[in-house]
Amino acid sequence: MNLRVVTVDIKEVTRKLLCGLWILICPQTSRFTSVQWSVPERDKRFVVNIDTTRFGAVEIEKEDILQFEAGLIGFCDSKDWVILADAENPAVAWIQSLQDCSLALAVVSPRRFIPNYQVRLTVSELSPIHLTDVDQAFVLCVVSRNDNRLTMNLRAPVIINLDQKIGAQIMTSDDQPLQYPFANLSSNLRQSA
């Protein structure tokens, strides 16, 4: 088993820019790092076993469970999610549903690929995740494959309140691309050649 739950490094702070009614979140680039269990400290009371379709049986700590009150868009029945690191690729993580063992979406930290990416939201759009301090926002974009190209969804990022362990997929107020192709991927280059 080479997958472990990600612990998000709180030091990867996001910057906030308040422009009138808009909030701009400028997420910092982050890497998804695997956390090794320290065996003597493990306590079964704090551990949940999930049986995932993609990754097999995975042990997670209860405190790593993220609550999505509205689920993800189109997956409103999945309220509890956990972020699993991909040990083979620190640029990618998987957001795994606890309600549906077959449901997991690949996510990336968008700024790693688009240095000037900003999330433009209204204050009320952030209210479902009770975000009072934008420094506590962790921004992820969902990866998909369209026409054989790997793309990321910049229009509706997943925003997580690290402090309260709650998240939501929120549509940005501006017209960001829904399918933004990754640059410099050999498969994407082949496709466009």
């Binding site: 993609r54 990754f55 993800l72 868009i73 189109g74 997956f75 991909d86 083979e88 690729n89 620190p90 640029a91 990618v92 998987w94 449901l103 997991a104 979406l105 690949a106 990336v108 790693r112 969902v142 990866v143 998909s144 494959r145 369209n146 790997l150 969804n153 229009r155 509706a156 997929q169 549509m171 829904l178 399918q179 990754f182 991927l185 050999s186 498969s187």
Partner: peptide, 24 residues
């Protein structure tokens, strides 16, 4: 817009764990 994002999420959920190897 809602339907487009829903379709995009459904498409994303079909991705298998090996197909993201080359990212990053």
């Amino acid at each position: 817009v809602y339907e487009a994002i829903k379709r995009e999420n459904e498409q994303a959920s079909k991705l298998d764990s090996s197909s993201t190897r080359e990212i990053g």
